[in-house]
Design a protein around this nucleic acid. Sequence first.
DNA 1: GCATTTATTTACGTATGCATTAATAGATGC
DNA 2: GCATCTATTAATGCATACGTAAATAAATGC
Lengths: 225, 225
Amino acid sequence: MQAVGSKAQSNSDKAVEEMRRMIFSGELAAGSNHLETELANLLGMSRTPVREASLVLENQGLIEVRPRKGIRVLPVSPTDMREVYDVLTELESLAAAQAAQQGYTVADLETLGAAVNAMDIAIANNDLDAWAAADDAFHTELVRLSPNTRIQSIVGMMADQVRRARTVTLHMRETPHTSNEAHRAVYDAIKNGNPETARRVHYDHRATAREALLSLLEKYRLISL
Amino acid sequence: MQAVGSKAQSNSDKAVEEMRRMIFSGELAAGSNHLETELANLLGMSRTPVREASLVLENQGLIEVRPRKGIRVLPVSPTDMREVYDVLTELESLAAAQAAQQGYTVADLETLGAAVNAMDIAIANNDLDAWAAADDAFHTELVRLSPNTRIQSIVGMMADQVRRARTVTLHMRETPHTSNEAHRAVYDAIKNGNPETARRVHYDHRATAREALLSLLEKYRLISL
DNA sequence: GCATTTATTTACGTATGCATTAATAGATGC
DNA sequence: GCATCTATTAATGCATACGTAAATAAATGC
């Protein structure tokens, strides 16, 4: 048998998973360089799976492979964040519109609704980490409700970058109240089968979030994350 | 020294290039399966660079790696094309709007203008292949004029899929006159610094192209390309 | 002392070997 | 004749070895 969550994976898969985790946790800091041999030792495997993992992570935009300089964890600049948010804004809005068009039942929307509620509770408890987790869940579920699998994978990659930036910025800003209203409005629009409302509300929400983040980065002079 | 175009590349790079070429030319047919050893022999190298190339092409959505079944060239279905066009529609429209906002001079827009003219000439000569090449050039240059590098790479990947479908459909349809008018209108909107016009015209253009392609695929019962 | 050349180190790219294990063929029982 | 079990085949995942070339250090000339 095989555990539900994951497991039974190759070393190459484990290397991808571990390196991702280390990048997000900061164990592999942004801008830092690491030789293949170093990572291989660190992960207890040979260079081969590390090389394969590097290719995957490079394609995902998390690292850069520079022969003889090492594998470099890509720093995220304000410009990067603007690019990422611009893509997210367009594609998630379309996903929201398409989700609204699908004619989902309330049962289908359970996960999305749960995420909205979780965000409200997290705000009430002033628990920013729980809020971030619920926010992630909302956006993940939103694109999952779109039939477009390409949007799902692209948004997934862009969301990684947002996640990296958020580990730095999460506790710098005001508690995100208005954001929750937007999420609930998007949820309602999908539930009520109103594609254009869903699209517009989500679009504005992401555009607002983008500007809030960028001014935060500027305020704290965060030119590299 | 090093040739301008490419060269001085590793076997791994060559494998990516060659396999891409073979996929687009049909030498590696959609749906076909190929073992690592087979491709290695074909390309005159060992399995190692072929494996690395496979990972890259898998991330680009051109193939699927199925252990012991072989490397499978992914067929493109009408659903895939709809997904691809939906993403292209959103992101290229944003690129067009951003390009219009940049305040480019006519000199900056030379390549884009040349592509528009080339399309007109190709239509006049009834040369569909030249038209397709110019169309590619237009869309590539359009996103290059946007400052968003992520849009560039995502659109590049999606455009690959369009290219694959077009090798089949190009000679099936009517000569694309109206498409040229749209391209010129987008060019003009960018030149005149009119972001919203650029966005809207391009959006409608892509949406129209999508529907035209999908009805063509349906008409000829092309469920897999 | 500084620049330039030469020697050394070492990280990478690739080939190769091997254990593992999935897939297939063959054998056995009913 | 069909299902089930066993044996064989072979493709993969990974470790390892090695030649090559880049980066660094050392040496030489000026």
